[in-house]
Amino acid sequence: MFDSDLEKLRKGAMETGADKAVVIPASDVIIDPRVRLKCMIPKCYMSGSCGHCPPHGYSIQEVKDIVSQFEKAVFFRVKVKSDIIAAESLYKAVESGVLDRNGNAFNLTGYYILVFSIARILQKRARAMGYTRTHGFAAGNCRDPFCHLQPHCQDLMTKNGCRHPEVSLHSMEASGIDVFLMAAKTGWDHYPIGGSCIPEKVPQGNLMGLVLVA
């Protein structure tokens, strides 16, 4: 793959909404079995409810096999204000399944959709350049942004497969990729954010995605 093409993809990530993006060797993708375990301890509310999330989705070995087929990747970041991603009302919304009045769940879903969109756009552009093999990873789960109004994940519960295969992707973390550590090694500030943190104590939040290209 030509460096100039990779640079075009990196810039493409920035043009379409990422605030940072870097080209990395695929060998720098950190795959760690603890990451998928962490999706289940404590149990993420989507664990077991989405076909892309643990204990479903790719196994660690499957991800290793996928990544080993590629030489390079574009790793990108979408910055999210901490008063949205760490908002107390957000966690109440997650637990209740009802959008919060402050609109934080709605706004955050928009950021997640952006990560899926950037990854899909980069894959499409790479294919247009002639690189037929690409693989994209997004952030979080795909059920909230794309199937929130549906009673269940069709991929998981039926033999009909995913409702949105053109836009949906596995997330980095659900696939055992240590996105936190990759961000830190890239030089991006990243903070652990959960239901117990105070927005004012967290400088920023990030959502990240990855597109592998051969």
């Binding site: 962490k38 999706c39 404590p42 993420c44 509310y45 989507m46 664990s47 999330c53 957000l90 966690y91 997650v94 637990e95 955050l108 997640y112 979080g140 789960n141 909230d144 997330s171 973390e173 659900a174 936190f180 550590l181 961000a183 830190a184 090694k185 500030d189 990243h190 903070y191 652990p192 954010i193 959960g194 239901g195 117990s196 943190c197 105070i198 104590k201 967290v202």
Partner: peptide, 21 residues
């Protein structure tokens, strides 16, 4: 939105940046 959530514990008044090592 797959972050850890807790109910047993109080608010985290200090959040450390993730370090490369």
């Amino acid at each position: 939105m797959g972050q850890a959530m807790t109910q047993f514990v109080g608010k985290a008044d200090h959040v450390r940046r993730i370090l490369p090592a």
